[in-house]
Simulated assay, not measured.
Amino acid sequence: MSELQTIPTNAFVEDFLQTIEHPVRKADSLNLAKLFEEESGEKPMMWGPSIVGFGMFRYYYPSGKEMQWFPVGFSPRKQALSIYIMLENIHLQPFLEKLGKHKKAKGCLYINKLADIDETILREMIRTSINLIQTKNQ
């Protein structure tokens, strides 16, 4: 079995975000870092080479395998901003109906720019994700 590549690193988040070439994506990423920190109460941490995560918890797969993971985070990809929220569909769907322009994949949401979504809804999603993770890990 291959080793997980997305693990916490000692890289500096600010240094990573300053390397983003696209001006809107860079500004949005800097704003997301502040927003996620405010709502999670956690400092940003690099996970692998390109994901900014907030917090850490032990995630258990149905198979019994476990790993360290972050409850919320984002990654400024070339095509879109990837938003990572640990909410199951039952909790996620009501937010998505009000969020604004986005695409959904299995483990993340894709948005082109922050202006496309309702920031208040994103903040609620972050808080809800953090609260659910904390409740499950008590």
Score class of each variant (00 low, 15 high):
residue 4 L to Q: 13
residue 6 T to Y: 03
residue 9 T to L: 13
residue 10 N to L: 12
residue 12 F to W: 07
residue 13 V to I: 09
residue 15 D to Q: 15
residue 15 D to Y: 06
residue 15 D to F: 09
residue 16 F to I: 06
residue 20 I to Q: 04
residue 22 H to F: 04
residue 23 P to D: 12
residue 24 V to N: 05
residue 24 V to L: 11
residue 25 R to V: 03
residue 31 N to K: 12
residue 32 L to S: 02
residue 34 K to C: 12
residue 36 F to A: 01
residue 38 E to H: 12
residue 39 E to V: 04
residue 39 E to D: 14
residue 47 W to F: 05
residue 47 W to P: 02
residue 52 V to L: 02
residue 52 V to W: 02
residue 53 G to C: 03
residue 61 Y to D: 09
residue 64 G to L: 02
residue 64 G to I: 01
residue 64 G to M: 06
residue 66 E to I: 09
residue 68 Q to V: 09
residue 69 W to M: 09
residue 69 W to T: 04
residue 70 F to Q: 04
residue 72 V to L: 04
residue 72 V to R: 01
residue 75 S to L: 01
residue 79 Q to D: 15
residue 79 Q to G: 10
residue 80 A to V: 07
residue 81 L to M: 09
residue 81 L to I: 14
residue 83 I to H: 02
residue 87 L to R: 04
residue 88 E to W: 12
residue 89 N to S: 15
residue 91 H to C: 08
residue 91 H to W: 10
residue 91 H to D: 10
residue 96 L to S: 04
residue 97 E to A: 14
residue 97 E to I: 11
residue 98 K to Q: 14
residue 99 L to R: 01
residue 101 K to C: 04
residue 102 H to N: 06
residue 102 H to Y: 14
residue 103 K to F: 11
residue 104 K to L: 12
residue 105 A to M: 08
residue 105 A to K: 08
residue 106 K to M: 11
residue 108 C to D: 03
residue 110 Y to D: 04
residue 112 N to L: 08
residue 113 K to M: 06
residue 114 L to Q: 04
residue 115 A to K: 10
residue 116 D to C: 08
residue 119 E to G: 03
residue 119 E to Y: 06
residue 120 T to M: 12
residue 120 T to L: 12
residue 122 L to M: 11
residue 123 R to D: 07
residue 127 R to L: 06
residue 129 S to A: 15
residue 131 N to Q: 15
residue 133 I to S: 00
residue 134 Q to M: 09
residue 134 Q to P: 05
residue 134 Q to Y: 10
residue 138 Q to F: 10
residue 138 Q to W: 08
